[in-house]
């Protein structure tokens, strides 16, 4: 072992020797140390003003507007606390004694036997078999009836009599539109027919009514017309002018048929 170490040391020495054997030595002039000089600022005296005299500043303390009640710290009070639980637990421990097991009454339970046949519940009996009936009778043949929906032909009746029972209004002709000569002729006939003074007469209207068959006549002053009730003879009677007037002194009515010129 030592021999091997020695050989190794030898080899290492030889290796080092060979490695450094061919090295050239070069002389390198050492760089002279140059002292670097840094200037320093000379100390200067800076004049300063003298110390200022202390000034007394008078400050006024303002009172608090609202008094604040300071609560004094309460002094600590020692209180003795003791926990007696453990002691009570130890003292009041309850001793539970277990009762010894005793022998009970035993009963034999018999296991019911399984049913040999299952019973079906809710069974619905099938309906009875329907019996078919054959209807051999045919429906009766309906009989057709004819109903004529046409409305009956009506018959017209003549009802002129019933119509004549109703009053017929006849409007007065406009006297103002009559020729003056004709109106004077009518007025003359009115005076002759009634025998009344013309100044005492107020003409209510000139109407054309049947000469015959006027059963009733009434004056409707509101509409300026007369209501006439006619008879059947009035139908074929010619229409002639008829003047209705009122007497001024007593208000009585006068009438007169006049003739066309």
């Amino acid at each position: 072992m030592f021999g091997r170490m020695k050989d190794a040391m030898t080899d290492a020495a030889e290796t080092l020797r060979r490695a450094f054997a061919g090295l050239k030595v070069m002389e390198v002039a050492p760089e002279p140390f140059l002292p670097q000089c840094h200037g320093t600022v000379a100390l200067a005296v800076e004049p300063r003003a003298g110390l200022e005299a202390p000034v007394t500043v008078c400050r006024e303390m303002r009172l608090l507007r609202e008094a604040v009640e300071g609560r004094a710290l309460q002094p600590f009070q020692a209180e003795l606390k003791a926990e007696a639980g453990w002691a009570r637990w130890g003292a009041e421990a309850e001793v539970i004694r277990m009762t010894a097991l005793e022998g009970g009454q035993a009963a034999r339970v018999a296991v019911p036997p399984l049913p040999r046949k299952a019973t079906v519940l809710g069974r619905v009996d099938p309906p009875s078999r329907p019996t078919s009936h054959r209807l051999s009778e045919s429906l009766p043949q309906p009989s057709t009836r004819r109903l004529d929906p046409r409305l009956d032909q009506v018959t017209a009746e003549a009802g002129l009599e019933s119509m004549l029972s109703l009053a017929v209004p006849i409007r007065s002709e406009n006297i103002q539109h009559l020729p003056k000569g004709m109106w004077m002729r009518y007025t003359l006939q009115l005076v002759r027919g009634t025998g009344e003074n013309v100044r005492n007469l107020e003409v209510l209207g000139l109407f054309r009514i049947p000469r015959k068959g006027v059963a009733d006549l009434r004056h409707d002053p509101r509409l300026g017309r007369i209501l006439v009730r006619l008879e059947s003879s009035a139908i074929r009677s010619p229409r002639v002018p008829f003047i209705l007037a009122r007497r001024k002194d007593d208000g009585s009515l006068l009438s007169c048929f006049v003739e066309d010129p």
């Binding site: 018959t155 009746e157 003549a158 119509m163 017929v168 049947p210």
Partner: peptide, 11 residues
Amino acid sequence: SGIPLDFRYTE
């Protein structure tokens, strides 16, 4: 004049 000349009616 409105004077009836004829009047017919149906039943």
